[in-house]
Amino acid sequence: MSTTSTAGKGASTRETILGRAYVHACVNGLEGLTIGTLADQVGMSKSGVFAHFGSREDLQLAVLDHAGERFVAQVLLPALKARRGLPRLRAIVAAWIDWVRHSSDGGCLFLAAASEYDDRPGPLRDRLLAHETRWRAELARAIRLAVDSGELRADTDADQLAFEIYGLALAVHHDAGLFGYEASAKRGQTAFERLIRSTANH
């Protein structure tokens, strides 16, 4: 077998492990993720999993990055096809609310991780904060583009509006599991549109 084929197989195995680890962490949290449990789920030995991730913490960090890639692919990238301004901001929020469905993986890993690591200094909290900071920046950037297009008022505080939109998304996440996704998503969209009306150029 060539070196290229071996490398390709190794990358494929790593992605398989990450996919299974991601689903497990969505349900049980990153703290519930262990090399032994994951090895059993993917039908590998512990040493086989260790060959791809040198430690449990390395695995947890990789799962956080994997979650970030999935979020960008499902929420941000599709929304970038919409026109800059309110259409793009609306597309981002609609995709974000749709992300809450989680019909196949049990929940939002970032919400679970925030509960686990918000007051626990260390590499995992630092990585989570980096992902969250980048997302807030992307959200604020979309808002500033809506200001530049003249659809939102020139005095709009993009960081504050991003914070408020983030709060709406958290409320949808919270309510979806308790009261049902459809009702929660509708309330989230209604609240978002009211927030936009309060900031829009009339």
Rank of each mutant, 00 (worst) to 15 (best):
R136K: 14
M1S: 12
L61V: 06
R56Y: 02
P78W: 08
L111N: 12
L145I: 06
R134D: 11
E15F: 07
A183H: 11
A142P: 04
E57Q: 12
W99I: 03
T156Q: 05
T37V: 15
L18H: 02
E116W: 03
E138S: 14
D155F: 04
L145T: 04
T16Y: 12
E151W: 02
C26R: 02
R194C: 07
G8L: 14
S55Y: 05
D40N: 14
G122M: 08
G68C: 02
V72D: 14
R20E: 10
Y181I: 10
L89N: 03
L77H: 15
S115H: 15
S5E: 10
R120W: 05
H102N: 13
A114C: 09
P121A: 03
T37H: 13
P78D: 09
L61C: 05
I17D: 06
H102Q: 15
E138V: 15
L64C: 01
H102K: 10
L170E: 12
I35A: 04
L64W: 00
R83L: 11
R70K: 12
L170Q: 13
G10I: 11
A21K: 01
D175A: 12
A158H: 08
L145E: 12
D126L: 10
A191L: 13
D119L: 10
S103L: 13
S104I: 12
E57R: 11
A25F: 05
L129W: 12
D65Q: 15
S149P: 01
K186P: 04
L139S: 00
K46P: 03
L86T: 06
L178S: 10
A82L: 04
Q60N: 07
R194I: 06
T16L: 14
R127K: 12
I35E: 00
R187C: 05
S184K: 07
L129M: 15
L89G: 00
S47M: 11
S103W: 10
V63R: 00
A200R: 12
T199W: 11
D175E: 11
L170P: 07
V27L: 04
L86F: 04
A67V: 08
T34H: 12
G188S: 02
L178V: 09
F163G: 09
G85H: 03
A7W: 09
D119V: 09
G19L: 03
T190I: 14
G180P: 09
R20H: 08
D105Q: 08
